[in-house]
Amino acid sequence: MRWINYKPSRITALTLALCPFILVLLAYAIGSAARLADNPADKLLPGIAALGDAINRMAFTPDVRTGELFLWADTLASLGRLGASLGIATAIALVVGMLVGMFPYLRALLAPFIAVVSMVPPLALLPVLFIVMGLGEVSKITLIVIGITPIMIRDLAFKVLDLPHEQLVKAQTLDASSFQIAMRVVLPQTLPRLFTCLKLQLGPAWLFLIAAEAISSDSGLGYRIFLVRRYLSMDVIFTYVAWITLLAVIMNVALDWLRVAIFPWTRGTAQ
């Protein structure tokens, strides 16, 4: 038998999946123990107890000065920014993506422009955004929207263009107007793709969020990481990185679950 035909059982698959995680944790524990043996005050690779202490301090102990629970306050601030920008980006991408995908005149007008704009590295625009829009929330949300919207528009427009031409012809023989075709033929088939598209853009969205928060902010997950970096508080940084990863994983799973719940026919397909 060829190697491509060997398949692991469920138990083996689970064990194999856990292996890289355990290896990384093991490597960390060994490296941390070695450094701590050399210098008990080492901050670079804090031990498990120090990490537990950091979690307790950031998530469950109110700050002496402000009374805030930092982890939750930061999470709330970051998710607020992320939510607002994902909402705006999704709305723009759906509308513009469908228009560009459906109407050849609009496609001729906008498609090359969007293609070029999507190539602009958003982080390079950050200094400009800060001058034009100030250091507040607007510039942070704008950065994320600029960063992910053009790619989402293109993705959705391609999806619309990929729809079988026969469907559009059929709808027209049934005397559907352009608006009716948009609402009844194109939209239902584009929406599931929107979920997947959003899911794929979560990574870049987090990246832009943290970059914006690093430069100017008074709360947020990225703000905290770049603040404590000043005094090498790796215990807090590791805690926050793990938390951000967990949030991203949850959002990923939730979007997939939501898509299947709303559009059951997309289960198991590569939407």
């Binding site: 200094p127 800060f130 001058i131 250091l135 902010s217 008074d218 703000y223 603040l227």
Partner: peptide
């Protein structure tokens, strides 16, 4: 009210209305 701001952005920041 203290707001953490990166040093390379200070000059630009001062020229915006909210700073």
């Amino acid at each position: 009210n203290v707001v953490n701001t990166a040093d390379p952005d200070m000059v630009g920041a001062f020229q915006t209305a909210d700073v």
